[in-house]
C-alpha cells in the first residue's frame, strides 16, 4: 500500500490501491475509537480548518472529531459568520487561513470544483467535504468501508443506489469508488433525476424499482436534494414516496441479507419508511461511526510526507 497525495479532491482520480489504502487505514482507526483512550498524537501541532461554505452538521462534526482524535487543532469557519457576506473571495479567504498556518483545509462548497481551485492557490492540503453536485469523497470511502466490513468484500456485489442521482455528489463519488472496486452498480429513481448518461460511468440505469432492488446486496438510499433543484423534477413528494420510497412491502421482495444505507440526513416517511430506518438491516448509524474512522484515515494519510513509507 502507498499514499503520496497531498489533497483528497475526488474519488475519480484515485487508484484502486489508493482507495484500499484508505479503507485499511480506516480499519486501524476504527479500532483506536474502541479503546478507552481514543486519542492518538499523530497530527500533534497541525491545524485543520473546516471551511464550510454550505451548511452541514454531520460531516463538519465528523471532521472536527477526527482532527481532535488525531490531536490536531481545529477551527470552524462557516459561511454565515464569515466574510463571504462582506464580499471576500474564496481565494482570499483561503489565503487568510493559510496565513494562520493552516495545514489542512476541509472545504464544503456549493460550487463543483471549488476544492480543486483551492488546491492550486494555497499550499495547505485540501480535503473535499462535498462540492456542489460533483463529489463527496469521504462519504464514498466510509460507505465502501462499511460495505466491506459487512460483506467481507466489494467486488461482485450488487449495489443499488436509489433516489436523486442527478443532484447527488454522494452518488457520483460512490459510483466511482464502487465500480473501481468491482461492484455492479444499479441506479434507480425518477427518470428526470436518473438520466441515462450515468451509464457512461459504468453503471446500469433502470426505472423499475422492484427489479432494481431484487438482487441488491446493498440498497443505498439518497435524499431528494431540494436545495439543488432549480425547478420541480417530479410531481410531488407523495408520489415519490409511493413510487420509489423503501417501504416494508418493497423490502419484503429484496434478498433477506440485503443491507440498507443512507448518507443522512434521512427524511423519514419520504425515501425511507421509519421502521426500516431503525431495523437490523439498516447501517445508517454505523456509517456515521465509520465516517469518523475514514476521515481520521484521510487526515493521517495526507499528513504523510514524500518518499517511501519505510522507517528505520
Amino acid at each position: 500500500m502507498s499514499w503520496n497525495r497531498k489533497h483528497l479532491l475526488d474519488i475519480e482520480s484515485l487508484s484502486v490501491d489508493e482507495i484500499v489504502t484508505v479503507l485499511d487505514t480506516a480499519r486501524a482507526f476504527k479500532a483506536v475509537g474502541e479503546r478507552a483512550i481514543k486519542k492518538v498524537p499523530a497530527l500533534r501541532g497541525k491545524t485543520v480548518v473546516n471551511l464550510f461554505i454550505e451548511p452541514s452538521t454531520r460531516t463538519r462534526i465528523s471532521f472536527e472529531l477526527a482532527a481532535q482524535r488525531l490531536t490536531a487543532d481545529i477551527v470552524n469557519f462557516s459561511a454565515d459568520a464569515s466574510s463571504f457576506k462582506k464580499g471576500e473571495t474564496l481565494k482570499d479567504t483561503a489565503r487568510n487561513l493559510e496565513a494562520l498556518n493552516a495545514d489542512f483545509i476541509v472545504i464544503r462548497h456549493s460550487a463543483s470544483g471549488a476544492p480543486h481551485f483551492l488546491s492550486r492557490v494555497v499550499n495547505a492540503s485540501i480535503i473535499n467535504a462535498g462540492d456542489g453536485a460533483h463529489e463527496h469523497p469521504t462519504q464514498a470511502l466510509l460507505d465502501a468501508f462499511t460495505i466491506r466490513e459487512h460483506k467481507g468484500k466489494i467486488a461482485g456485489l450488487n449495489v443499488t443506489i436509489l433516489g436523486d442521482i442527478l443532484y447527488s455528489r454522494v452518488a457520483r463519488s460512490n459510483i466511482w469508488a464502487l465500480t473501481k472496486l468491482g461492484a455492479k452498480v444499479t441506479l434507480c429513481g425518477p427518470s428526470t433525476l436518473v438520466p441515462k448518461t450515468f451509464e457512461q460511468m459504468g453503471c446500469r440505469v433502470t426505472y423499475d424499482v422492484d427489479e432494481a432492488l431484487r438482487d441488491a446486496d446493498i440498497i443505498h438510499l439518497l435524499r431528494i436534494q431540494h436545495e439543488r433543484q432549480r425547478k420541480t423534477m417530479f410531481p410531488g413528494i407523495g408520489e415519490y414516496t409511493s413510487l420509489f420510497g423503501l417501504n416494508p412491502a418493497r423490502l419484503a421482495k429484496t434478498r433477506p441479507d440485503a443491507l440498507i444505507m443512507h448518507p443522512g440526513p434521512i427524511n423519514r416517511g419520504v425515501e425511507i419508511d421509519s421502521e426500516i430506518a431503525d431495523c437490523g438491516r439498516s447501517l445508517i448509524l454505523e456509517q456515521v461511526t465509520n465516517g469518523l474512522a475514514a476521515r481520521m484515515a484521510v487526515l493521517f494519510l495526507l499528513n504523510g510526507g514524500k518518499g517511501p513509507q519505510e522507517v528505520a
Binding site: F29, V32, V311
Partner: peptide, 21 residues
C-alpha cells in the same frame, strides 16, 4: 502494539501502514 501513530516522523515520509493492535 502498533506504534506508528506515536512516531515522531509522521510528516517526514509517506504515511506508514498501521498494523492491528
Amino acid at each position: 502494539l502498533d506504534v506508528s501513530l506515536h512516531r515522531d516522523d509522521l510528516d517526514q515520509r509517506a504515511a506508514p501502514t498501521i498494523h492491528p493492535t
